[in-house]
């Protein structure tokens, strides 16, 4: 398949995916304890409903924030996964596997519970985000130090998983030591959920992740060169050191901004890039980045919808759903890949 054809094909695919995302969003807003038909949802969204009406309150105060969060959260994690897969030259890399999400969660956990113990509560979403970023980058630095010494990528992934388990164990300790009603939300958050969103958090999530989508897209050409391996990228004039730092920052920021508000969300970062590669049959980052963003959005909204509807009025942790959907997909893709080889 030549590049021109891919360009045409991915444009059609992009249009279809955006349409699917829009339809899914409308339905996701409509579905819940009170069902709102799509036309009602659209009427409310386009400002043709009475602000005092129950539909208006349900859409604006309850459902919309959650749908937006799951959309941008899914997109951010997918893109972070894609970038990490390119950085580590391994299709199984993702922010969850490499322990980056866990590091971010630990940092935020310490901040939140430390605050509870010290008698104040951290509510500023920017501070939560920066805390998560510190945790995410700390783990990435550890991983990079390992990757400089350990040549085997498999070993590296295992190290990442161990770092992740270690951070999770520390979070477990935090939870155990602060068994208190005031932190019910904290427990929900550690399990992973898009249901804890407030509008200020959404502003941070949307603004930061949107900016990073653009930054990642601008890195597309160099990311393509890096797909050939670092040595080849160097001979093609790419400043690989700067590019690596760029990838680390962007994927760290993306992971942090999701984890700060939604806790640990597994498998999206690994499955969505796989799905996009398979669907588009390309390695071209300039096509994969936007498609990961859109497919990640679809995946996030879909999984969140399932997590809050299957055992309503109770909720599943988002990771439960993403694992049910993500694990079979990843296994299927891996089997299919092995069959070719």
């Amino acid at each position: 398949m030549r590049q021109t054809d891919i360009g045409k094909k991915s444009r059609i695919a992009a249009a279809l995916a955006l349409l699917l995302l829009a339809v899914l969003t409308v339905f996701a807003i409509g579905i819940g304890s009170v069902y709102l038909p799509p036309q009602t949802v659209l009427r409310v969204l386009f400002g043709q409903a009475d602000p005092a009406s129950p539909e208006y309150i349900i859409v604006w105060n309850m459902r919309l924030s959650r749908v937006i969060a799951s959309m941008f959260g899914g997109a951010a994690l997918s893109l972070s996964g894609l970038l990490l897969q390119i950085l580590f030259q391994n299709p199984i890399a993702d922010p969850y596997i490499l322990g980056i999400s866990s590091g971010a969660r630990l940092a935020v956990g310490i901040m939140l519970l430390g605050g509870v113990l010290a008698g104040f509560s951290v509510t500023n979403p920017w501070i939560l985000f920066l805390g998560a970023l510190a945790g995410a980058l700390a783990v990435m630095v550890v991983m990079l130090l390992f990757s400089a010494r350990v040549r085997s990528v498999t070993t590296l992934l295992i190290v990442g998983m161990m770092v992740g388990y270690f951070c999770s164990a520390l979070v477990g300790l935090l939870v155990a030591f602060s068994d208190d009603n005031s932190i019910a939300d904290f427990t929900r958050w550690t399990m992973g959920s898009f249901g804890l969103m407030t509008w200020p958090k959404i502003y941070v999530l949307v603004s930061v992740s949107s900016a990073l989508f653009v930054v990642a897209f601008l890195m597309g050409k160099n990311l393509n060169a890096l797909r050939m391996g670092e040595a080849y990228a160097k001979t093609m004039g790419v400043n690989t050191k700067a590019l690596r730092i760029g990838i680390i920052l962007v994927s760290g920021l993306l992971t942090a901004v999701v984890t700060a508000f939604a806790g640990l969300v597994s498998f999206i970062g690994m499955s969505v890039p796989h799905i996009c590669r398979m669907l588009l049959k390309t390695d071209d980052s300039r096509a994969l980045i936007p498609s990961c963003v859109v497919c990640g959005g679809i995946f996030g909204v879909g999984c969140d919808l399932i997590s809050r509807t299957v055992i309503a009025p109770n909720e599943l942790a988002i990771g439960t759903v993403t694992a049910y959907v993500g694990v079979p997909i990843v296994l299927y893709l891996l089997m299919k890949k092995n069959k070719h080889e």
Binding site: Q3, P91, M228, G229, Y232, T235, G237, K337
Partner: peptide, 26 residues
């Protein structure tokens, strides 16, 4: 200066054309 190396190139979906076109990068 361009180089052809022995490093494994892991591209799962790229065609012959795509790989060669990478050379235009600079």
């Amino acid at each position: 200066v361009s180089a052809v190396l022995t490093n494994r190139v892991e591209l799962e979906n790229s065609t012959g054309w795509d790989v060669v076109a990478m050379g235009r990068n600079p």
